[in-house]
């Protein structure tokens, strides 16, 4: 199942891209599955495992939430507003 990941800020700098697709195995993958695939692809970013956030269609999602075919997933590094 294909999802489209958009990288913001630090994640864009470190991956060197603004977006890429991930093909996740299984019929009902979750955000956790996507993050596992992401950190396997970018092991140098594993320190962000506990701080990275994600959003699907402009709503926050948590690690157990299901992803669907074609979802646009924003991966968000630690926030720095204010």
């Amino acid at each position: 199942m294909i999802v489209f990941v958009h990288y913001h800020a630090l994640l864009r700098d470190k991956t060197g891209r603004t977006n890429e697709s991930f093909d996740l195995p299984g019929s009902q993958p979750t955000l956790r599955d996507l993050l596992n695939a992401f950190f396997a692809r970018y092991p140098g970013l594993r320190k962000l495992e506990t701080s990275i956030r994600a959003a699907v269609h402009d709503e926050f999602v948590e690690s157990g939430d299901a992803l669907n075919e074609g979802d646009r997933v924003d991966l968000l590094p630690p926030f720095g507003g204010g």
């Binding site: 630090l10 630690p78 720095g80």
Partner: peptide, 26 residues
């Protein structure tokens, strides 16, 4: 989800800053 990057006058690398005000550790 607002992200902040600090650019320095000492010529060193710019850093992304987290909610604690410290550079995001990698």
């Amino acid at each position: 989800p607002v992200f902040k990057k600090e650019y320095f006058a000492d010529g060193g690398d710019a850093v992304w800053v987290g909610p604690d005000g410290k550079p995001v550790a990698l």
